[in-house]
């Protein structure tokens, strides 16, 4: 009986130690666990722009310009505080549209233009029929039912 309790205590302590170790490791590596950086991170100099990196944010409404006859497209990625202009030559995912989230992968040049070799669409966790989305929009709310707020994460 006593041995059993000791074993249980051992496991509990072991699990607690492991959880603490995992928390420390995850914390130490958390900058690598971040899949993409925001335009504000770039503006604040938090990103080493010598290397390629992933930039995520919302596609600014009205910013998408396509070059006719080619796959070339340019648009602005914003987190509603800072903007970065993106140039891309390639196929865009089906979900790519203005006002939606994207994660782009590429390089920032000296002029502050980001040349992407990959553009991935990021969608949110909201699902609804088109009619409901239309009705919400007419009521002056964003599709997720909340008021349009600039702090919304992509």
């Amino acid at each position: 009986m006593k041995k059993r309790h000791r074993k249980l205590l051992f496991i509990v302590i072991g699990m607690a130690g492991l959880a603490a170790a995992a928390a420390l490791v995850l914390n130490a590596f958390s900058s690598n666990l971040v899949y993409f950086r925001s335009p504000s991170d770039v503006a604040a100099g938090k990103v080493n722009t010598d290397n390629p990196f992933r930039l995520g944010g919302m596609v600014r409404e009205g910013s998408v310009v396509r070059v006719p006859g080619t796959l070339k497209v340019s648009f602005v990625v914003t987190d509603y505080e800072q903007d970065v202009a993106i140039h891309y030559d390639g196929v865009l995912p089906d979900l790519f549209r203005e006002g939606q989230g994207v994660v782009t992968e590429g390089r920032l040049d000296a002029e502050g233009v980001f040349t992407a070799h990959t553009v991935l669409a990021k969608h949110d966790e909201n699902y609804m029929p088109p009619e409901v989305a239309d009705a919400l929009e007419k009521a002056g709310k964003s599709a997720d039912g909340s008021d349009l707020s600039p702090s919304a994460t992509p």
């Binding site: 958390s30 666990l33 899949y35 925001s38 990021k122 969608h123 966790e125 909201n126 609804m128 029929p129």
Partner: peptide, 21 residues
């Protein structure tokens, strides 16, 4: 929730109303 991911947050979670019709 902890890190920026390409995957979207949970649609159904205990802590908030589900964001699904």
């Amino acid at each position: 929730e902890w890190w920026e991911t390409l995957h979207q947050p949970a649609t159904v979670s205990k802590f908030s109303a589900p964001s699904m019709h």
